[in-house]
């Protein structure tokens, strides 16, 4: 625990999965996440687990569906276009109450886009990338340490709520290297009496998401919405830094939150009252915290590696109580500190 090791974000994620008891990984190569399947290819055999390179992204998430249906901690990872391919099954995993972990090391889009890190998959992650009324518990790491910690947490939350969990990372966090404290492996796992493992001494289990009777389908939707409410009530995670006296609050997640923190520190050094709110869960989103801050701050600045996606949720939370500005770069181009600083000064009238 005390000794730190130097890891890439993608490696930390894969290592975290093995520590979390994941022994079933199914994936497909795509940049910039490929170190994840490569890590499993090397280390799953020694952990006694299964690494399988699928024929497609669609097959990989389908294999996760199958392994999760048998109660195993299963996982896949990909980057943006690959995550798009998986969406039908992600909707189905959520509808089928199947816990699993999906990691998106996002890159610039739309289309094939570019292979540099980006945050333009926010809508896809939290607004339903697939069909139907469903929700993904979405965690957004901003460091290599969190790539490991949130992966472990993701498996725990997936099992706790019987819902798929998405790690929305990006190519920068996935590729960068930082020292990491490695926690102890998870040794306690929940019973899964619902799993399809053979109907020995009990009625058969069915994992199914088809409900031809509309009334039954509606009732199933009510149950799902109740589940999503339980998740929203229990699992909101965010951090506020120097917001107590802030005039301007920077709102950013993942890699952008690192930029926001640096900008905040520089601003504070100049005596500017700037704080940071960092959502760690993107769904559920820290709506109440933003609303509370909106009562007393002069404004917000949402910072994203996109053309502006999370900013819409900030505006929905604030409901016009305070101005919400946006600073972003899209297509995989990094936000520059000086540009954000200039926006901060302008917003504070300096």
């Amino acid at each position: 625990m005390s000794e730190k090791i130097l890891l890439k974000g993608n490696e930390a994620c894969a290592m975290g999965a093995i520590l979390a008891g994941c022994r079933h990984y199914f994936g497909y190569p795509i940049t910039p996440q490929t170190e994840i399947p490569e890590y499993f290819a090397k280390h799953m055999p020694e952990a006694g687990g299964v690494f399988l390179q699928a024929e497609s992204e669609i097959a990989a998430i389908s294999m996760v569906y199958g392994a999760a249906a048998t109660g195993r901690r299963a996982m896949t990872s990909s980057s943006s276009p690959g995550i798009s391919l998986k969406q039908e099954t992600i909707s189905t995993l959520s509808a089928g109450d199947l816990p699993c972990l999906i990691v998106n090391v996002a890159r610039g889009g739309p289309g094939l886009g570019c292979i540099q890190g980006a945050q333009s998959d926010y809508f896809q992650s939290v607004k339903g990338g697939g069909h139907g009324d469903y929700r993904l518990l979405t965690l957004a790491p901003n460091s290599v340490q969190e790539m490991m910690d949130l992966t472990i947490l993701g498996f725990e939350l997936a099992d706790k709520h019987r819902n798929p969990v998405l790690i929305l990372s990006d190519g920068v966090v996935g590729q960068m290297m930082e020292p990491v404290s490695v926690p102890e492996p998870v040794t306690s796992f929940p019973e899964k009496p619902w799993a399809a493992v053979g109907a020995k001494g009990r009625p058969k289990n069915i994992i199914n998401t088809l409900h031809l009777n509309a009334a039954v389908c509606e009732e199933r939707n009510r149950e799902l919405q109740a589940k999503y409410k339980r998740i929203a009530d229990a699992e909101l995670r965010y951090e506020e830094i120097d917001t107590q006296d802030a005039d301007l609050v920077l709102v950013a997640y993942g890699i952008s939150s690192r930029i926001a923190l640096t900008v905040k520190n520089r601003a504070r050094a100049e005596g500017l009252k700037v704080g940071v709110l960092r959502p760690i869960t993107l769904w559920p989103f820290p709506t109440e915290a933003l609303r509370r801050l909106a009562e007393r701050v002069k404004g917000f600045l949402a910072i994203e590696q996109s053309a502006g996606q999370m900013v819409e949720d900030v505006r929905l939370a604030v409901e016009g109580r305070a101005p919400v500005a946006f600073h972003g770069r899209s297509g995989g181009v990094m936000i520059q500190l000086d540009d954000v600083e200039a926006d901060v000064r302008k917003l504070l009238g300096r």
């Binding site: 389908s62 294999m63 996760v64 199958g66 048998t70 299963a74 189905t92 399809a196 069915i206």
Partner: peptide
């Protein structure tokens, strides 16, 4: 025990089931 697969995906789902158990 039964698992319902999406359209065309049954062999991939069965792969996950069999690898799982």
């Amino acid at each position: 025990d039964m698992v319902g697969a999406l359209h065309g995906r049954a062999p991939a789902v069965a792969t996950g089931v069999k690898r799982g158990r």
